[in-house]
């Protein structure tokens, strides 16, 4: 008797739950229909871009699996056999590995150390110039190289650094020194790479700091004036703390890209004489992948590169959050 009642109770309970779920489901579907009805036009507007990202960003992400396969063109991405970490192991044990790491990290750390502070210094100095016209001229001229293409930039470097008649060597010649083959000597490659970048982008990079400086509360400057602060003291105590959050964010972003040394410039500056210093991960991926058609191996190297970047980005972001309360997310 009791058993039957229990069973009945359970059944009714179950049917009640079922009804509730049904009602819930219905309202959920209704909600979706309602939202879609309200927003379908907005979704349609976004659709072309969504399709673009699916095709050219998410579909390639699906293709990343060939890093763990032996890609065979006729079998396609899905049909090719799995090989595990074979390509990664091959990369880690190849003689190229340490050279690529050394060159890539060497260039990008050098770039960070030399290239990061210069726009900040420029912005601080520009911010202190009273002469509006001079400021404008400096800005106009130093922003300009940013718009030059990498091909033109490297072309200019070949011209200016030519050991035969480049103006840099003519200048060195004035002091009775022998001319230097900057682009044919691995020793100079990093410096040439980094400082051409500084030449091209330092002025442009200062804009964002100038924007941050213009956002500082003017009362602070007035108070500093009343207190008799010198310009240097003003920079140190007001300007630098004022641009700190901007600098930290940019630093995080830069560190997150530390393995991405610009392919184009390295590729264009590379020649058989300096290849020892100029072969970086990006140029190697290109050569292995497109020139030698080792698709899986090249993809594995690329994936390794991306993963290192993400790890760096996340950890620097965490550190920055702890240390300075500024972070990307």
């Amino acid at each position: 008797m009791q058993g039957i009642q229990k069973a009945k109770g359970e059944r009714s309970l179950r049917s009640q739950i079922g009804k509730k779920q049904k009602v819930h489901k219905q309202s959920f579907i209704k909600k979706i229909i309602k939202t879609v009805k309200k927003d379908y036009q907005l979704y349609l507007l976004a659709l072309p871009a969504i399709v673009y990202f699916i095709l050219f960003h998410y579909w390639p992400m699906y293709g990343v699996q060939i890093a763990f396969k032996d890609f065979i063109a006729v079998k396609g991405i899905t049909g090719s056999p799995w090989v595990g970490f074979k390509h990664f192991e091959r990369f880690f044990t190849s003689f190229q590995f340490w050279r690529l790491m050394k060159n890539t990290l060497g260039i990008s750390i050098y770039q960070l150390v030399a290239g990061f502070p210069i726009p900040i210094i420029m912005a601080l100095l520009l911010n202190q110039t009273r002469n509006k016209r001079f400021k404008k001229v400096v800005q106009t001229v130093t922003y300009a190289p940013h718009f030059i293409s990498v091909v033109v930039l490297t072309g200019m470097m070949y011209i200016f650094l030519s050991p035969r008649n480049g103006i840099v060597n003519q200048f060195i010649g004035l002091f009775g020194k022998d001319s230097v083959f900057f682009l044919g000597d691995p020793k100079y490659f990093k410096s040439v790479f980094v400082f051409s970048g500084v030449w091209q982008n330092a002025g442009w990079g200062s804009i964002i700091y100038l924007a941050a400086l213009s956002g500082i509360n003017p009362e602070l400057y007035e108070a500093a004036k009343v207190d008799g602060a010198t310009k240097l003291q003003t920079i140190w105590n007001i300007d630098i703390p004022g641009i700190m959050p901007t600098a930290v964010i940019l630093l995080i972003m830069n560190v997150g890209r530390i393995m991405d040394v610009g392919f184009q410039k390295a590729y264009l500056l590379q020649n058989s004489l300096n290849v020892e210093a100029s072969e970086i991960i990006a140029t190697y991926i290109y050569k292995i992948g497109l020139l030698q058609s080792q698709y899986s191996y090249s993809t594995a190297i690329g994936l390794f590169n991306t993963i290192i970047n993400i790890i760096l980005l996340v950890s620097v972001n965490k550190i920055a959050k702890k240390v300075s309360d500024t972070s990307l997310w």
Partner: peptide, 12 residues
């Protein structure tokens, strides 16, 4: 922050 990389994009 994440992309397929050179070859997967090339294949697409």
């Amino acid at each position: 922050y994440f992309n397929g990389g050179l070859i997967p994009t090339y294949l697409v």
